[in-house]
Design a protein around this nucleic acid. Structure first.
Length: 307
DNA sequence: TGGACTTTGCTAAAATGATG
DNA sequence: CATCATTTTAGCAAAGTCCA
């Protein structure tokens, strides 16, 4: 896809989704509950919402979602509610879910209809650094806490959707976040792993993030850092998790600044970047007397984000 | 030149934490 | 519980260094 070549899509109305299932496998288990919120991006408000239980005979995940098979079998108009859900989907520009990789596999399998909307994943979206979220997959609980949003009844579909709606409502630059989640972010700031997993690539190869080995290979073989730049001649090793940047992004930005990224501390290393919960590399770096940077220190070295 | 030792970094496996 | 994504760590081989 060449994002720069075409106009980004309009994202005015979102269909925020959440599922509760009886297990992990769409082949072996069933969706027991669907919740959905139709959300206006420009108004930052909920337009309509639905929730329905689907009848199941057993629910091995009852300990998690507290939905008994008996409750799911009580007479209620789930077919009509599901039709309403499909009407809501027709009004939406994109589907938003927390962990798209999980939720989207259930659509197209009865009783859930096929969904043709583009997907945005909130657990891997590039949330602003000031929220202090840990990189990688962010939990809904952490996201809610960072936005001072309370989840009514966790692990119930509509409660999670409603919490997500309130989180999005509090997001200053929601439009940019959504576009980024659809692959329209500026290339330098885009977290490749998170976006690939959300965009619905059909092959496993395309969805799968780069492996550690691939990362090492990149770091040690074919990337030639710029000979100039504020970090020219510096060799960095990362340990622990950074809250505002993914590892891939840190690699990219250090190298863009002329630095080299290695995955092991040695005498050639000049700086160790220690994030949350650092590993033994920190001890080794200390023993070698290397410069140790925290996240703020690294960001100062890197300067402003490239546009 | 060659043996001994140190350093470097690649790789696989394990650990952790997220989802229901 | 199953699965996935991410990160750390240990082990190993290759490369580098030192010295007789």
């Amino acid at each position: 896809m060449t994002a720069a070549a075409a106009q980004p899509p309009s994202l005015e109305t979102l269909l925020i989704l959440d599922l509760e299932t009886t297990g992990f496998s769409p082949e072996k288990h069933r969706c027991i509950e669907l919740g959905a919120v139709l959300f206006s991006v420009s108004l930052r408000t909920t337009l309509s919402q639905v929730s329905m239980l689907f009848p199941v005979d057993q629910n091995p995940a009852q300990r998690i979602n507290r939905i008994s098979p008996e409750a799911s079998q009580r007479p209620q108009p789930w077919q009509q509610t599901l039709e309403l859900f499909q009407v809501m989907a027709q009004h939406a520009d994109a589907a938003v879910a927390h962990n798209v990789g999980f939720d989207r596999r259930w659509f197209g399998r009865p009783p859930l209809p096929r969904l043709t909307l583009p997907w945005v994943c909130t657990c891997t979206a590039p949330w602003p650094s000031h929220l202090g979220l840990r990189p990688g997959r962010v939990s809904l609980k952490d996201l809610a806490r960072a936005h001072e949003v309370q989840i009514g009844e966790a692990h119930r579909a509509l409660a999670d959707c409603a919490a997500l709606a309130r989180i999005l409502a509090r997001c200053d630059d929601l439009e940019a976040l959504l576009l980024s989640g659809l692959g329209w972010s500026k290339p330098q700031t885009q977290d490749k792993t998170s976006l690939a997993s959300c965009r619905g690539s059909t092959t496993k190869q395309a969805r799968r993030p780069r492996t550690r080995m691939q990362e090492c290979s990149d770091a040690n073989h074919h990337k030639t850092p710029s000979p100039t730049g504020p970090l020219a001649g510096k060799t960095f090793v990362l340990t622990g998790a950074l809250s505002s940047l993914s590892r891939a992004e840190v690699h990219q930005r250090i190298e863009a600044a002329g630095g080299i990224v290695r995955n092991c501390v040695s005498r050639k290393t000049t700086h160790l970047v220690a994030g949350f919960n650092p590993g033994s590399k920190l001890d080794k770096a200390r023993s070698l007397g290397l410069a140790i940077l925290d996240e703020d220190g690294l960001l100062k070295c890197l300067g402003p984000r490239p546009i």
